[in-house]
Design a protein around this nucleic acid. Structure first.
Lengths: 332, 332
DNA sequence: AGGGCTTTTGCATCCGTATGCAATCACAGC
DNA sequence: GCTGTGATTGCATACGGATGCAAAAGCCCT
């Protein structure tokens, strides 16, 4: 603390000005190569690193990105969080993690984020009101919705996977396998993921002139909700759950409570491809989200926006991939 | 950005000095009640909040706590992360999330944490070298190991659950139930959790003058490792896994690959009580870590240290609780 | 050698807030 | 009404670095 070396200390020690120390750390600054080398060497020796807080103050850019997470109990997100943090670090940002207190709107986090001069926000789970978004963006800060899409017209960029397309794949595979009585289990109704997956699933039926499959509302994206939903599925021979965690709960219900065999009696499909989907006890056939690509895209968009990219907001969609496992083996 | 209201703006508008605005936000400062009310009201109207970055600069305290996480793929940690973030927020801190790139020492994160003037660090999974710890603490910053204990003599505080005691409970329950051929499955060997759980498990045997149970090294704390380990368990009639995720992999192996019934043929116990342990498909009997209490203790220690508490480092242990489920029903 | 240029460097100042210190004010006691 | 005392307030400066601007130093050419 008192022992922390400052740019001034280093400058004095080297007999140069503090500005030069500052510039030596800015690759874009014009500094004689010899001088830069001398400074960086001395800095390394003294264990000096520019104070990020002070830099943030003058630059009006903190290089901190707020990560607003909810639903951390959905096993899809920990992996996202881990990779996102690493990717942000690699891009030169730090990640400030905010958890939305259950039931709250993400808008509640904005004041705290502004207070810490966060450059950008990545929102998963929770979304922003368009008023909140407009306010935030108006300040020259960036925001990206991850695995989510804004409902109304919005100035927010979003990155998600092609939920509808993935769900259509699920429906087509089930239909081609000759499954007759299909069911869709919806998750949290106010999420774009659940809505889009439902829409995509239905679209395959419409395209073939079939009547829409039965729909069960699980209420939210939890194991327990999936469990309950599956018990209402009656004699369905194919169930597409809005995400994996629902599907796992559903499979357990089907097998242990309803006494039905998966996949012989009933095929089960999920969405996300969380680690547990691959466990032999479940072997859940599912649609894999291209997480790595989604994260890369997110960061690219953030950086572009921070550099002032004036494009209108985009809703980027990356394709989901069907991962066949034991809970349903597609024909062919 | 340009539109951000500063304390000066507000002060000018109110015809007072900037200092008064600053003080109005400091509950300990002496400000006439009427003045404070007037300022806070105007602040609210103007949507003003003190710039945390600037405050951090003058205060030499950022009110940011670094959270160094690893093993985010272990479902025990997401819950910890979520609660920890909420608790830190409630205590007036922000959480900066750092992921240790796989295989790296947490020391690698310290420079970045210093750079952002983080007040304190909470380390889960990864640990600090004692040199790194000494350096960090010497700077007036705090650090706490969570769910981990330092191996050698160390100046680091730690909060964990009583792993040895919990493991002893597991052993005693198995022995009292008359299980004869017991096995301990170790996790990552260099973690205090695995070591202590093993030690505690063995101690129950020693106390009864029984020879030590068999030991299988899973290698790390993953589902797959647990799966592999269980296949080596032969005719064991009771297996205590160093944590839940190992136990789940083990149960699947026992049931689906080894064709053994749980709990009739073999009792299975885990440690942590992750959400999946409660799923009906597993119904894993396990030792619950008192996560909420551990987090509260962690924050309490952090705060005390930041206020200069000179106590020697403590290793706090909170008791684990046996949660009986279907994978092993203790006698009585 | 001198002029016109391009790099390098240093000087000052600013970012937005906190805080020690001195000035001011309010109010009680006499 | 005047002085003493404590509560309020304003002033000035510091925190650690970034950066516009001008001064200084090279450099190339005629």
């Amino acid at each position: 603390m008192g022992s922390a070396v400052t740019a001034r200390d280093l400058a004095r020690q080297l007999g140069v000005s503090q500005s030069m120390v500052s510039r030596a750390f800015d690759p874009a600054a014009s500094v004689a190569p010899a001088m830069r080398a001398r400074i960086l060497e001395a800095a390394a020796a003294a264990n000096y690193r520019p104070n990020g807080i002070a830099a943030a103050l003058t630059r009006r850019r903190s290089r901190i990105v707020g990560l607003v997470m909810g639903e951390l109990q959905n096993p899809f997100y920990p992996a996202v969080l881990e990779q996102m943090t690493l990717a942000l670090q690699a891009a030169g940002f730090e990640a400030l993690l905010l958890t939305v207190p259950p039931g709250q709107q993400a808008d509640a986090c904005l004041p705290r984020l502004r207070q810490y001069q966060v450059d950008a926000v990545v929102l998963t789970s929770a979304s922003l009101s368009s008023a909140g978004a407009a306010h935030w963006l108006g300040d020259g800060r960036a925001a990206v919705l991850f695995n989510r899409t804004a409902s109304g017209p919005t100035p927010l960029d979003s990155v998600a996977c092609d939920n509808a397309g993935g769900a259509r794949l699920a429906a087509e595979a089930l239909l081609e396998a000759g499954r007759q009585e299909l069911v869709f289990v919806a998750g949290r109704p106010d999420t774009s993921t659940s809505q889009e997956r439902e829409r995509g699933f239905l679209s395959a039926f419409a395209a073939r002139g079939l009547r829409a499959p039965r729909r069960i509302a699980a209420g939210d994206f939890s194991y327990e909700a999936g469990h309950r939903a599956a018990l209402q599925a009656g004699g369905a021979d194919g169930i597409f759950f809005a995400n994996d965690i629902l599907a796992l709960g559903g499979m357990d219900a089907l097998r242990h409570a309803a006494g039905r065999r998966v996949p012989q009696d009933v095929a089960v499909l999920g969405f996300d491809d969380i680690p547990m989907a691959g466990w032999p006890g479940y072997a859940l056939t599912t649609l894999r989200q291209p997480v790595a690509a989604m994260i890369a895209a997110t960061i690219e968009i953030l950086q572009a926006r921070l550099e002032g990219d004036p494009q209108p907001a985009r809703a980027l969609r990356l394709p989901a991939e069907l991962v066949p496992r034991g809970s349903f083996l597609p024909a062919g």
